[in-house]
Amino acid sequence: MPTTAPHALSDVTASDSTLRRFLHGLPGVDAVGLEARAASLGTRSIKTTAKAYAIDLAISMVDLTTLEGADTPGKVRALGAKAVRPDPTDRMTPATAAVCVYPDMVATAKKAVAGSSVKVASVATAFPAGRAPIAVKLADVREAVAAGADEIDMVIDRGAFLAGNYMKVYDEITAVKEACGTDARLKVIFETGELSTYDNIRRASWLGMLAGADFIKTSTGKVAVNATPANTLLMLEAVRDFRAQTGIQVGVKPAGGIRTSKDAIKFLVLVNETAGEDWLDNHWFRFGASSLLNDLLLQRQKLATGRYSGPDYVTVD
């Protein structure tokens, strides 16, 4: 069982102290510069054919999400149908990347998207707080994988991370990665809104990638501050630098708070300008969202017909 890939950085995870030295040796983040850069990239004007391309790309990148206590099998089936065919009036509309549900809904979701390209992602490891014994977290993951989940969205132990117990977080991620087996891709959620500083987000990103994450994800969508252009830009820089050093490509998933097409397109500009075109694909970049899809569909209808559409012409989720 390989816990880490053999690459240029494999020795930094040898012990607690080397890991700590490496993470604290990462360059500090210029917060003002980061936010200014994210804001300036957000002013790009994307129009006409480029906009049409961006909207279709964004739709294909959506992880259509329902993570409510009130989720019913019926709601998950409806979500699955919408993921497979987002706009029944226009069959050229691409399918979304995945549906994202709680572990007990994986089997239902799997059935709902059967025969399509849509994957089933499941949150696990005592989402969203992550406050459970490791055995419980791993059982959570195994159940979801056994039920057919293609992707696992785990939360890190923010308490351990903030206490400086990096090795514990590292070990947990590697253990979950192992539980995912070879089939399921692992997304690691940092809950950036709880990490307080940009320096912490950078450290968490590197920690996650060193531990074997296939995706790094901003947040659960359950706290006040979710994905922002600035923290996503920071994570995009991290995956770019990580690939430059190790040759391993890692995906990025901003989640929560992205509700309009305009926002989504701003994120795509960040991806293109920071990580590069290699990431402009739903294998490497995703949006964790629920209401975003409706706005993308309204914009798509506007571009296709030339008239403004309205909420009566998309589903009520």
Partner: peptide, 9 residues
């Protein structure tokens, strides 16, 4: 013109 064609008016 856009108001007359708007689907939500």
């Amino acid at each position: 013109a856009p108001l007359a064609a708007h689907q939500d008016v």
